[in-house]
Nucleic acid binder design. Structure first.
Lengths: 165, 165
DNA sequence: ATTTACCTAATAACAAGTTATGAAGTAAGG
DNA sequence: CCTTACTTCATAACTTGTTATTAGGTAAAT
């Protein structure tokens, strides 16, 4: 399964960050974003996570240089993930944990957003179903009532008049 | 042996920091500097160390908020006496790690609750739809029965005309 | 052939953090 | 009494980081 990449326009849409801001962050934070044959930026999922993290740290009021430091930590964590993990608790790096925790927070926020979306969808769905069922039932009931009346002999019900003859 | 304190003029001289800058740092970084009976600032040795550290971090380009974080770190580390103070001031942040962990727990609980609610709602929704369908089927059956009767007898009912032959 | 979406680079415009200055007040000491 | 060294508070002046705009250019799709 090939990794998916996003163009800067998509990223801008998804993360609600202006395109020039994305370019600015790339320069100021020295992010290395892939380019395709034509030179267009290709953002990977990992890049998206990084950007989310960056925005969070920004909201916290962290400086560009501070964010740079934090990112270095995250990179280290991901590098060491490849290597066999035989370190016990004593040798475990706190920065590693911190970076991981930050990632988890980002992921969780994403999940929370997802949850919210699901809730909205269910709301709409419930409303829809309710409305539709009511309507259908109403129509059938109406029809049946009229039909029954008709059956009982009333030839001149308003419906038959209305329908014509 | 009583601790020695320095007045702002002395500190300014020793560390080559303007007095107004010292006051500014106290405010922006929320340092708690002792005051004497008259309200004059009294800088302790520890305060001097802190100030030196602050200037270093500043030179590195760290933000006020980043420095604030770093300072909290130092405090915590000195309190817990767990680890020697290394140069990873920004990231060796046990309190922050704990705070993050708590945040994660809260988020996860929220998500779990939400998930449970969503599941219940979906269950109810499905049940409802099922029930409605049953009901509708019943009514249609009823209708069909009547329709059959109609077909077998009265050829000129308004319904048959309406439906079209 | 025109629109769309991307690129770079320069620069304007704005916001915020910081440095610096000044006014007005208090207490200690020569 | 006058100077010195503090205090607070307000504000001016400057610096910097960031946002936003513009111009000029390429490639692909309509």
């Amino acid at each position: 399964m090939r990794e998916r990449f996003y163009k800067i326009g998509e990223v801008s849409e998804m993360l609600d960050i202006e395109q020039y801001t994305l370019r600015y962050l790339e320069n100021s934070l020295k992010l290395k974003i892939k380019r395709d044959e034509r030179g267009d930026r290709q953002y990977s999922e990992s890049d998206l996570d990084t950007l989310k993290l960056i925005m969070e740290l920004r909201e916290k009021g962290l400086n560009t240089t501070a964010i740079k430091m934090a990112l270095e930590n995250v990179e280290q964590v991901e590098e060491t993930r490849v290597a066999p993990v035989n370190d016990n608790l004593l040798t475990t790096n706190i920065p590693e944990l911190l970076a991981l925790a930050q990632q988890i927070v980002v992921q969780n926020e994403e999940m929370l957003d997802n949850n919210k979306l699901l809730t909205e969808r269910i709301n709409r769905l419930e409303e829809k179903v309710e409305k539709r069922n009511m309507e259908r039932e109403r129509k059938i009931d109406e029809f049946l009532t009229l039909w029954k009346n008709e059956q009982e002999g009333k030839n001149k019900s308003w419906l038959s008049k209305l329908v014509g003859k």
